[in-house]
Amino acid sequence: MVRRTLLLLAPMLVLVAATVAGQDLEELLTQVGEPYAEAYSEPLIHAFGANQNTGLYHTAHIPAGKLTFSIGVKVMGTYLNESDQSFQKVIENVDLGDYLPEGHPNAGDTGDIVLAGPTVFGSTEEVGTGTAYVNGVPVYQVEGIPGLLDTRWVPLFAPEMQVGGLFGLKGSIRWLPELNLSDYGKTKYLGLGIQWSPNFLLSPTFPVDLMVGYFGQEVELGTFIQTDASSVYAAASKRFGIADVYGGLAWESSTMKVDYTQIDTDVPVSFEKDGRMTNRVTIGATLNLGVMINAEMGIGKMVVYNLGLMFGM
């Protein structure tokens, strides 16, 4: 009973935590314009998409005529490059009138803009800056924003359910109930996937299990952040005692769209960026100890880790 309650409660707590983090991020971003926000958010954009496309399978074994069911939670984490905790974005040879306050003596000049400071995962103590230069001389500087969370680990939690076992097919769903929060809007997390193993068409002595699959997901945090991610993959696994060792290749994409209104200018800001991770090699292992515990690593342009805990048969 306690275990079931925890299983039901954990995803809700995760959703609330994610929503609070999203609200904090929105509060920070509304203080800056688009170029700053885009550079500041880059590590989040690329890590979030990579996380979404992680932990999509923990074995390639799917029975052809035996119903299987499992439910559990997947915890993903992208380990960022050290340099992703700060950024420096330079916009050269621009009309400074677009960036300086009205009436500034250099508003009519052509100059350079340097935006620099912690990223969303940089120092929470340090505040970034936006500096305007004319001929190498800084003529105006405005404060940016601090980091949201000082870490190189970008986590994502996903409750997941799988049903399969007919003709080598298995369906997966990642889902969290919608929350409607005042001042923020609805939060939503939905992912659907399908896997197919051709092993029932092969010789029973075929040495490994094979599987191909697709998974598509979307996350919305109010109207502020919307993400889409999808992955097409092929995998193989082999059982050694209580462990399934598995590996695979994936071709994937992800997009994050950010919308907000800058507070001091009342200007709407909207930008959309594709995730950096477009393909990966996955290696991992699942221990079958009554519950299934899996650990894996996805290696592509980003490096992503996954731990999973699945109950079922």
């Binding site: 550079a39 880059e42 590590p43 954009i45 690329h46 890590a47 992208t78 380990y79 960022l80 490059n81 050290e82 340099s83 992703d84 905790q85 700060s86 950024f87 420096q88 974005k89 330079v90 050269e92 350079d112 340097v114 990223t119 230069y133 190498g136 950096r276 290696i283 690593m297 290696i299 342009k301 980003m302 490096v303 880790y305």
Partner: peptide, 17 residues
């Protein structure tokens, strides 16, 4: 595996003008 891999840089790190 944990010891040997690192993600690419994703945040802009432009040289100063």
């Amino acid at each position: 595996l944990l010891a040997g891999c690192s993600s690419e840089e994703t945040a802009p790190n432009d040289p100063l003008p």
